[in-house]
Design a protein around this nucleic acid. Structure first.
Length: 465
RNA sequence: GUGAUUGUAGUUCAGUUGGUUAGAACGCCUGAUUGUGGUUCAGGAGGUCGCGGGUUCGAGUCCCGUCUUUCACCCCA
């Protein structure tokens, strides 16, 4: 009796078509990261739970996938542990699957602090797991591509992140997007002005929803959370502020003349913008969003988030600066800044905007079809020679009807077929058929190799132009 | 975690107030064409109706549970 197989909720298979497209995204991101001097890093799928818990807030802890201990995991459990999930968990699970790439990276930096040359620039492209309810653009297993720099507080790093985002998106053909930036110190300044100190998290969460629920919704939520009417009167003009990034910064500067914290944040933003101008981008896509807050609590400096316009998918990239990420693991005063591309969402965006090129799926250039076993054997050295010439080729593995072999070539979109039968073996010439035109001719193996390698070159030239 | 929603052939979907043997399109296989794919024509195969219970003379259809899909909230890439 066979059972119908299935995969867990929120996970996916990636077939050849999807992999070709995904690899295009991965390759693009990797090449840009490397161009900016980032080094690769991979960390284990599992971390000790002590490394993961407490880093993402209570809600994050709930979303961690835990790994059951091996063997007789109940042996250490006592009667009284049975009812309390927290207690029981400690006894039966000591490992969890990574929730993001930043915390494992921080762990790595601390463990290898004596070998690492700071500033340390690393990139990491691996899946992460979160046990939340899947929906559009949200999966339980998804890939992140992180690049972080630790060991410097230079704003050049922030600037380079913006450059990398621009470069990746340009290469992928995504044009209509914005990089929303803000600064945690600016937010803190606003929070201070309206008397939200000590309650900053509620405040950030509320204003972050402006896009979604509008000013009235934000107002309502803040009132519910216990903010006063008078403080909201001060806040609302700030939330609704519009204009270019320079205008907004100038406006905020006037508002916060006496506020040291906010002033520093605004200056940092100005410095990054000034640096950016040295790199002479046609358009930098940066917008100032005074309502951008971002949930992860470890951010302390500039924060950013990328959204593609006209597509109903959450942010495709985000990040920020954190002054003390490694502090919790005992390494103080290491400032870092990093960001992450969400490959799965970029994929969804590109699919929706129809941005993948037709030719992403790579297939063999040639299929050798044959009449019978002797013909197949005759084809083997030919196959070898073609591969030596750098032509990707395959020989049909079974002895079967031409029709079936041709259908295979057609379905796999293999552009050329070499036919081998008695005639070819007698004359020493091979029949080369172009599947796209239907044209076929008798040629020597040498001529075919030459023709196909030349063809390959002109094809790639055509694609670039 | 809260509230909805979805599941029928390989795929996309029909299936009436519960009533014979559950249909279509596309795809797949065979042949027309024994050395040639795409087009055309003729024929064919393929379904434990997500899974498990229940109600009923009778369930794809109604009820309960469970898994899955999608969506909103929460949070987030």
């Amino acid at each position: 009796m066979s059972q119908k197989p299935s995969i867990p909720k929120g996970t996916r298979d990636f077939g050849p078509d999807k992999m070709a497209k995904r690899n295009l995204i991965f390759d693009t991101i990797r090449s840009v990261f490397q161009k900016y001097g980032f080094m690769p890093l991979e960390t284990p799928t599992m971390e000790n739970l002590s490394v993961l818990t407490g880093k993402y807030g209570d809600e994050g802890d709930q979303l961690l996938f835990k790994v059951l201990n091996s063997g007789d995991f109940m042996s250490k459990v006592k009667e009284e542990d049975g009812k309390d999930s927290q207690n029981l968990l400690r006894k039966i699970s000591e490992k969890g699957m990574r929730y993001d790439l930043t915390v494992p990276f921080a762990r790595y930096v601390v463990m290898n602090q004596h070998e690492i040359a700071f500033p340390f620039k690393r990139y990491q492209m691996q899946p992460v797991w979160r046990a939340d309810r899947p929906q559009k653009g949200r999966y339980r297993e998804f890939y992140q591509c992180d690049a972080d720099v630790v060991g410097t507080d230079s704003l050049l790093c922030e600037c380079e992140i913006i450059l990398m985002i621009n470069e990746v998106f340009e290469k992928l053909g995504i044009e209509d997007y914005h990089i929303k930036v803000n600064h945690r110190q600016v937010l803190s300044g606003i929070a201070k002005t309206i008397g939200a100190e000590g309650n900053e998290r509620d405040f950030f969460v509320a204003i972050d929803k402006l896009d979604k629920v509008g000013p009235e919704g934000v107002q309502k939520e803040l009132l519910q959370k216990g903010f006063s009417e008078s403080s909201l009167e001060v806040l609302l003009p700030l939330l609704n502020m519009e204009g270019s990034i320079e205008d907004k910064i100038a406006q905020l500067k006037r508002t916060f003349t006496s506020n040291q914290v906010s002033a520093e944040g605004l200056e940092a933003l100005e410095t990054v913008l000034a640096m950016l101008s040295s790199f002479a981008l046609a358009e930098h896509h940066v917008e100032f969003d005074q309502n951008l807050a971002r949930g992860l609590s470890y951010y302390t400096g500039m924060i950013f988030e990328v959204k593609v316009k006209g597509v109903a998918i959450g942010s495709v990239s985000g990040g920020g600066r954190y002054d003390d990420l490694t502090g919790i693991f005992g390494l103080k005063n290491i400032s870092g800044v990093g960001f992450s591309f969400g490959v799965d969402r970029i994929y969804d965006v590109m699919e929706e905007l129809n941005l993948f090129p037709e030719t992403v799926v790579t297939t063999s250039q040639v299929l050798i079809v044959h009449h019978d076993l002797p013909a197949q054997e005759y084809g083997m050295p030919i196959l070898a020679q073609m591969r030596r010439s750098g032509i990707s080729a395959e020989l049909y593995p079974d002895v079967s009807k031409f029709k079936k072999q041709m259908t295979y070539a057609n379905k796999k979109a293999i552009p050329h077929v070499i036919v081998i039968g008695d005639e070819e073996i007698n004359t020493g010439l091979l029949t080369l058929k172009d599947m796209r035109t239907g044209h076929q001719e008798q040629l020597s193996l040498q001529d075919i190799c030459q023709k196909l390698t030349l063809r390959g070159h002109t094809d790639t030239k055509d694609m670039k132009s």
